[in-house]
């Protein structure tokens, strides 16, 4: 799977959260672009990147309940009517569109009765409408609230949550999570020092056993339910 990450941020170098995301990018399968760093958008190249990607991520801090201006400029320049739907070819159809948004307010602020009084889903409606028009699949948003207040443990958890958001098949079920880790386990074990590798291999084997035993239990339960239906 190929993922295209488009970052809208006017002061990227000063943003600890954006630098954190950049350092957390998976080693392969992801193209990363900073929209504000483009002197002018190369429309053909941008559209071509979109055609190549299976999943497209808009990543930005929430500024006055919307994305920074560079994302809108990119939309207005690159997403031409002819490209998106005008010639009835819908080149973006079936691709996934995900949003990684950071906010200065906590999660609880984004609900009716909360300090902001609006849900993030409501605020992101214009982007969801674009996805709908382009016949794309809208992914549940990855919102990171008050990055500066996260503990070290929460930041470590966010590394993998972010990587999975970029590259794991949706929906985010236990089965898909297990498959994502299983795909990476062998190369992670290879990356260990020789002294650690035996432990890594044992962990990988035990993880596989757990996964198979879950599959078996799920099958057994399905069988029981089937007989009960008779």
């Amino acid at each position: 799977m190929t993922t295209l990450v488009l970052v809208a941020h006017p002061h990227l170098a000063d943003s600890t959260s954006q630098q954190f995301f950049k350092a957390s990018l998976p080693a392969t399968g992801v193209t990363w672009e900073h929209l504000d760093a483009q002197p002018a958008f190369d429309i053909a190249a941008e559209q071509d990147q979109l055609r190549q990607a299976d999943r497209i991520i808009f990543q930005f801090p929430l500024y006055w309940y919307a994305a920074p201006a560079s994302l809108k400029a990119w939309e207005d320049t690159v997403l031409t009517r002819t490209f998106v739907y005008g010639d009835h070819r819908y080149p973006l159809a079936g691709k996934e569109l995900g949003i990684v948004v950071t906010t200065g307010m906590p999660a609880k602020a984004f609900q009716r009765g909360g300090v902001e009084g609006q849900t993030l889903d409501a605020l992101l409606a214009p982007l969801a409408a674009v996805a709908h028009r382009a016949r794309m699949t809208w992914l549940p948003t990855l919102a990171v609230h008050q990055f500066g207040y996260l503990t070290e443990a929460q930041k470590l958890a966010l590394v993998v949550d972010y990587q999975r958001y970029l590259t794991q098949p949706q929906p985010d079920t236990l089965a898909n999570r297990q498959a994502w880790f299983a795909d990476r386990l062998a190369s992670m074990v290879q990356g260990l020092t020789p002294e650690q590798r035996a432990t890594g291999e044992l962990i990988a084997t035990t993880f596989d056993d757990h996964r198979s035993s879950l599959d078996e239990l799920t099958d057994t339960l399905a069988m029981i339910k089937e007989t009960e239906d008779d």
Binding site: S24, L156, A157, V160, R177, F181, L185, F207
Partner: peptide, 13 residues
């Protein structure tokens, strides 16, 4: 950091 994150996330899984 990212390697540490992977093994900790696997532990949660």
């Amino acid at each position: 950091f990212t390697d540490r994150a992977f093994w900790l996330a696997l532990d949660r899984l």
